[in-house]
C-alpha cells in the first residue's frame, strides 16, 4: 500500500499538463477540421431549407432576397443593421410577390417557430410553415399539416389601421367552428393551445412588422431592380 501511494505521487504535474494539453490540441485540430469541411455544406442545407419554406408560404415565388427590416429602415441582409431578417420573394418577372417573416411563441410544450408569408398588395397572410415545434404528436402537431387549419392562412386578413401603425383587427385563433371574420383563425379541436399560439405569434409579429413593410415597400422593389441590372448586362 505504501509503495502504491508513493508511486501515485510520482506522477508529475508536468505529465498531467502535457497529457491534457496534448489531447486538447488533437481535439481542437479535429473539431476545426470537421467544422471547416462541413461549414459550406451546412450553410447550403440551411439555405435550401429556408428557400423551400419561403416558396411554400409565398405563392408563385421563384427567387428570394434577404433584408433586415427594423424601425430605422430597411437594408440588404449582411450589412450591420438593427431589425428582423425578412425574406422578400419575387415571381419570374421580378415582381414582389410577398414577404416571408419568422414568428415564434410558446406552445403547449416549447416554443413554436414558424415562417409565414405576407402579401403587401392584399394586406394579408398567404400561408404558414412550421419550422420548429415539440407539440404532442397526433394532437398539437396538426398545426403543421392539417389542411383545414392551414386553409385559414390563405388570405388571412392583416389590414392596417387608419394610422397605418398597427393592425385594424387583432389576428386571433377562435374555438373550432366559430370563425366568422377574415382575421380569425379556426382552431383545431383538441389542439386549442397550439392553434392559439400560432394566432398570437402572427398577431404580435404582424402588428410590429406589417406597418414597417408598408412604409418601406419601395425598398423591397428598388433593391430587386438594382440587383437585377448587372445580370441583364
Amino acid at each position: 500500500m505504501n509503495e502504491s501511494v508513493q508511486l501515485r505521487s510520482q506522477t508529475s504535474s508536468l505529465a498531467m499538463l502535457r497529457t491534457l494539453g496534448g489531447i486538447a490540441m488533437i481535439s481542437g485540430f479535429l473539431v476545426v477540421l470537421v467544422f471547416q469541411w462541413t461549414r459550406p455544406i451546412i450553410a447550403e442545407n440551411k439555405r435550401i431549407a429556408i428557400e423551400k419554406a419561403v416558396f411554400q408560404v409565398v405563392p408563385n415565388a421563384v427567387s428570394r432576397k434577404d433584408f433586415v427590416l427594423g424601425p430605422e429602415g430597411i437594408s440588404p441582409f449582411g450589412r450591420k443593421a438593427k431589425g428582423e431578417t425578412v425574406y422578400a420573394a419575387y415571381n419570374s418577372k421580378g415582381e414582389l410577390q410577398g414577404i416571408a417573416l419568422e414568428a415564434a411563441a410558446p406552445g403547449y410544450q416549447d416554443v413554436i417557430r414558424i415562417l409565414y408569408g405576407y402579401s403587401p398588395k392584399c394586406e394579408c397572410v398567404t400561408g404558414i410553415k412550421v419550422l420548429k415545434m415539440t407539440e404532442t404528436p397526433g394532437l398539437g402537431d396538426k398545426i403543421a399539416y392539417d389542411p383545414d387549419f392551414l386553409r385559414n392562412f390563405y388570405g388571412l386578413d392583416g389590414t392596417l389601421n387608419e394610422a397605418r401603425e398597427g393592425l385594424a383587427h387583432a389576428i386571433v385563433a377562435v374555438k373550432h367552428g366559430s370563425k366568422t371574420e377574415p382575421w380569425q383563425i379556426d382552431a383545431i379541436s383538441g389542439a386549442t393551445i397550439s392553434s392559439k399560439a400560432i394566432g398570437r405569434m402572427i398577431d404580435a409579429s404582424g402588428a410590429r412588422m406589417f406597418p414597417l413593410i408598408q412604409r418601406h415597400l419601395a425598398g423591397f422593389r428598388q433593391e430587386v431592380v438594382s440587383a437585377e441590372r448587372p445580370d441583364e448586362s
Binding site: 479535429l30 470537421v34 462541413t38 442545407n45 440551411k46
Partner: peptide, 15 residues
C-alpha cells in the same frame, strides 16, 4: 471531440 464531429456531420447530411 468525436461527438462534435458527429454533430457537424449529421447537420451536413440532413437538417
Amino acid at each position: 471531440t468525436f461527438v462534435t464531429m458527429v454533430d457537424y456531420a449529421i447537420q451536413a447530411i440532413s437538417l
